[in-house]
């Protein structure tokens, strides 16, 4: 009996609590299903005058991506999850600078919301379909910039990228899984189809492909794992 008790005590159930590290990994990947309406955008100069609003709409889910979720939201990837996941992000332009053909726009702080919807109804002709369903997660953006490279015409096309820092909030059904975590959005950004390589629906100005990321080891329901005392001691050496 004594031996049995010792055996039990040596097999610990250790909860490895997450600590923020500098790295990030994707949380939600929207593939090519993102479009931006940069209100007041001047296509001829690739500029977004200050005071105008950037609105991102997009959709993802297992119907769109082989691996749409990761990290604290990985449980949504069941292999048969037919729900649609749509999102909206808004921020206000602070103006565009032309660096000799590289058009660089800086944005003020913004907000984003992601919705879970059993109805697969996302339609860029009807922007309201990206904000219906149940609010799933939300947060704020900061330090957002967009870059359009208009130097080389087509090909390779007028291409670019946009980036923003994120802070995930408490709101939404899964807000508790990500609240307080930081992350980024890193995405392609194009205002002119090159050879028609994508479409920009009426009412939108840019095509974008990218993802929401979240810092490693932050958020989620941390899983437990079995460890021996030797393993636990090894963590502190």
């Amino acid at each position: 009996m004594k031996r049995f008790c010792i055996g039990l005590s040596l097999v610990l159930v250790t909860a490895l609590t997450g600590t923020a590290t500098a790295g990030t990994d994707f949380l939600i990947d929207w593939g090519s299903q993102g479009k931006v309406d940069a209100d007041g955008y001047v296509l001829g100069t690739h500029s977004h005058p200050g005071g105008n609003t950037f609105t991102l709409h997009g959709v993802t889910g297992e119907a769109y991506q082989a691996d749409p979720f990761n990290g604290p939201l990985n449980f949504l990837e069941t292999g048969s999850n037919a729900n649609e996941y749509t999102f909206e992000l808004t921020a206000t332009s602070l103006g565009t600078t032309d660096f000799g053909g590289i058009h660089y726009t800086i944005y003020g702080p913004g907000t984003f919301q992601v919705y879970e919807d059993a109805a697969a109804n996302a339609d860029f002709a009807n922007p309201g379909t990206f904000t219906d369903g149940t609010l799933m997660i939300e947060g704020t953006t900061n330090g957002m910039t967009t870059t359009i490279n208009a130097l080389f015409g087509c090909p390779p096309g007028i291409s670019g990228d946009w980036h923003t820092d994120l802070v995930y909030g408490q709101g939404g059904t899964y807000g508790s899984l990500v609240a307080g975590c930081v992350g980024t959005i890193d995405a392609t950004y194009s205002d002119t189809p090159c050879n028609g390589n994508f479409t920009i629906p009426a009412g939108y100005t840019h095509h974008t492909n990218g993802n929401f990321s979240i810092e490693d080891n932050c958020g989620g329901s941390t899983a437990t794992e079995q460890s021996s005392w030797t393993d636990v001691k090894g963590l502190f050496r």
Binding site: T21, A22, G23, G157, D161, T184, D186, N197, S213, D216
Partner: peptide
Amino acid sequence: DFAVIGHGDPG
């Protein structure tokens, strides 16, 4: 055509 973003990350 291809379009890809690159993000430097400590991870």
